[in-house]
């Protein structure tokens, strides 16, 4: 008999906003994201007994959702469907001219995140936004921790370049001793 506290079914509804945010950022469309969230919840409930008490529920849910998303992409590719589900207009704003504009003006941070390669974006979301550790992110993505680190570093350099983040804003914090 599993403990009654921390059960998947008791945590799921409260976690929906986070799960939905991750899904939207991952797939770039609210409609697709909502379907994805619902499917992830269904799968989580069906496999609730596999959730280990004492481990992070959010990481477990992110893994389920992300795996479903990967499945979706694969299916769409093999089915030859070219609906542009990866067009990230919902978070970045639709802009066919984005490439051109980017040379002229800096992107917003959310646009820049949306434009990252998938593998860089997902690791950035997990670590920087959802605050998973590298180890936890590695588990969610089923990749070595070294790969998490290299992708995350590249993601952040790309984000910094695209959105004009230099580090100058936080420099003074560090200099004044507000180090982590």
């Amino acid at each position: 008999m599993s403990p009654r506290t921390g059960r998947v079914e008791d945590q799921l509804v409260a976690f929906l906003p986070n799960l939905r945010r991750f899904a939207i950022s991952l797939c770039g469309s609210r409609d697709v994201a909502d379907d994805l969230v619902q499917a992830a919840c269904e799968r989580a409930l069906a496999n609730a007994e596999r959730f280990e008490q004492g481990t992070r529920f959010d990481a477990w849910m992110f893994r389920i959702l992300r795996n479903l998303w990967i499945d979706t992409i694969r299916r769409q590719k093999t089915a030859g469907v070219h609906e542009d589900i990866s067009e990230r207009q919902d978070i970045a704003g639709a802009s066919g001219e984005r490439e051109v504009e980017a040379r002229l003006t800096l992107k917003s941070v959310s646009e820049a995140i949306a434009d990252l390669p998938d593998e860089q974006r997902e690791v950035l979301l997990l670590v920087c936004v959802e605050e998973l550790s590298y180890r936890e992110a590695a588990d969610v993505l089923a990749i070595p921790i070294g790969t998490v680190m290299s992708r995350l570093a590249r993601a952040r350099k790309n984000l910094a370049d695209a959105a004009g983040i230099t580090g100058e804003n936080m420099r003074s914090d560090i200099v004044h001793g507000a180090k982590r």
Binding site: I91, V127, C128, R156, L159, I165, T166, G167
Partner: peptide
């Protein structure tokens, strides 16, 4: 170092 701290904070704020 600050760039890495700032990108993290910016990503969190943006989303």
């Amino acid at each position: 170092v600050a760039m890495f701290m700032e990108t993290r904070a910016a990503a969190k704020d943006a989303l």
